[in-house]
Design a protein around this nucleic acid. Structure first.
Lengths: 343, 343
DNA sequence: TTAGTCAATGTAAGCGCTTACACAGCATTC
DNA sequence: GAATGCTGTGTAAGCGCTTACATTGACTAA
């Protein structure tokens, strides 16, 4: 058996006894071809197991119907959920999603952006607002519309579809302070190069300031994303001189870790210590007590972002601008937050 | 400002005053070009914001360094984790990962396979072993090596890197039976078109049979993936005539749902009822009591699969076969499984 | 000096596809 | 019965790139 190379349009044309143009038409505009021919051609396609070469097609058609997304990591349920919704919406509009991950590193993100654009992405979904000017310039010269998500930052370099991390966390903090807590632990994901994390921490500081309290009421620990790291951070917080009565966590996963550590030390949540999360993942409902957290409409965000990006792409060269949308968050009161224990 | 189209190799060549061949060489084999020229060219590349067109390159070079993966959904931590490891390994070997999701539907998977191949995927990671013969034929005629994962099925149509779902679940069931349970509830993900789910259920039946027990000891409920569906399934199980003393869940997420329902009914886990999971996700450690579950080496599987697939791809036309690897699982004893309550 | 070598660059073909245009055949229309 | 339109198909250009081969010129060796 000779090493049959993968069949091309030409092979199909020969097999069907027609020209390549006809084959192409059969595949892309079947009604422009009379039925008898179409059957002949489709039969040949089947027989040869022909599959069109996307690159060649894209090169001449100048359309790819492809949109790219770059997320820090797939291993974060929050992104996974939003992305799944994003992809479903894209699919419904005939677009294909290409996903890449950056491991939270700006240079990798830059490389991935170039890679996705080279692969024909006509629009890009990115996480967060901050990125180096070279990238923005690249996007501009390539005329690729891009959307920042998981943040709401009108007037930023990129249009954004998301929510106000800072305000949401400030609201949660205000609630904690209102309940009477005056000694707050904070477990945050690394803020360096992560504008969502840092906005959340800023929100906390803001709320403390707005309540006319000194920022010495705060003890902040930064750590990597994960249950175990959250647990370790909680251990650190609890071994300090003054024990916080409430711990604000930058996300639900860290909060779950904090709860494990609290339990390990025989601290009852929330009677001995309150814990709050952020994101409202499944995990928030699975821990005991269930987590009081900030609900983020991840799926809605994915869907809205898809719609916005498609619009930007189809607006074409005209305006790459697009406009920002704030999706809003709300505090979900469950069992992990209450008044501080009486001493 | 004229509508500047995105710059091409030619534009760079003109801007640098050299031929396209030289520009191409600068980019792909810099040492074949004298330094002075190289600087000129790279400068022009920068100035124009040039980015090579992947499709055009792939078309002539016949290499894409791209591997595709199709998973049922990104919204499942189990896949996310394995995939992240897979992608890291690929990256280290200079390959790019293209991800698509199939929503657990075979026809969508087939379409995605074609789409990824058309986009130049040189190898494919798939989940599970079962798929229609047309797809296998397509893969064969296109000479695309493919690997089945999350299963171990030597002698199957595709080589596999994974674990034996059936044996793992049988082992867990045997353990439950050994503790004295004689009334087992089972909450399984839908088994239809999901060979992992069905293998797990088969494992349970097998273990019951091996213990010379009638399969009336089993009450099986199938449901969709999710905490809430797990909870509903548990409710169904608990409202039956005879209450199971142990509930075997097809995965940790369903198990977490089951625990919530148990708690809602004031049943203590494990004293009143035992619950087991499968996968050993973070969620298993976060619930209280922590879940006794089957540990699956997701990351290791991803890494191993990447290595195997790269090897298959680089073996090229010769043998698309590859060989299967069984990664092994083990039961993690935590707090959710104990002997049945005395009546 | 002259042939020979070699490194640096240019020339041009062609990868697989779509599509503008040309063309043939046929049914209408006056 | 010629002019007209329409429909189905073919012809061929060219998308952006890599690379085999040709060319150039500087240098070496005899």
């Amino acid at each position: 058996m000779p090493n049959a190379p993968t069949p091309t349009l030409n092979d199909v044309a020969e097999a069907a006894g027609v020209s390549t143009a006809t084959v192409s038409r059969c595949l892309n505009a079947p009604d422009k071809v009379v039925e008898a021919t179409r059957i002949k051609v489709l039969d040949a396609v089947d027989r040869l197991g022909y599959s069109p070469n996307f690159g060649a097609r894209a090169m001449v058609a100048k359309r790819t119907n492809t949109i790219g997304a770059i997320i820090p990591t797939m291993e974060n349920a929050m992104f996974a959920r939003g992305l799944q919704a994003f992809q479903e919406k894209l699919h419904a509009h005939g677009y294909t999603l290409l996903v890449a991950s950056s491991s939270y590193q700006s240079e990798i993100e830059a490389a991935q952006i170039r890679s996705l654009v080279a692969r024909g992405a006509e629009g890009l979904l990115l996480i967060g607002q901050d990125r180096p000017p070279e990238i923005l310039k690249f996007l501009r010269t390539q005329r690729i519309p891009a959307l920042a998500t998981w943040v709401f930052a009108p007037g930023g370099d990129l249009p954004s579809v998301g929510f106000d991390n800072r305000a949401a966390m400030a609201e949660m903090t205000a609630e904690v302070l209102r309940l009477g807590h005056r000694n707050l632990g904070v477990i945050s994901a690394f803020t360096n190069g992560n504008d969502r994390s840092s906005a959340r921490v800023e929100g906390i500081r803001q709320a403390v300031q707005d309540a006319n309290l000194p920022d010495t009421v705060l003890t902040i620990v930064e750590t990597a994303y994960g249950v175990e790291t959250g647990q370790a951070a909680m251990a650190e917080l609890l071994s300090g001189d003054i024990r916080p009565t409430a711990v604000l966590c930058g996300n639900d996963v860290l909060a779950a870790g904090a709860m494990i550590e609290a339990r390990a030390r025989d601290l009852r949540v929330p009677d001995d210590i309150s814990i709050t999360g952020f994101d409202d993942l499944e995990m928030a409902q699975v821990v005991d007590p269930q987590l009081t957290t900030v609900h983020v409409p991840h799926r809605e965000m994915g869907t809205t972002a898809a719609a916005a990006l498609i619009e930007m792409v189809e607006a074409g060269g005209q305006s790459i601008a697009g406009s920002s949308q704030n999706l809003g968050t709300r505090i979900i009161h469950r069992g992990s937050l209450t008044t501080p224990p009486r001493t």
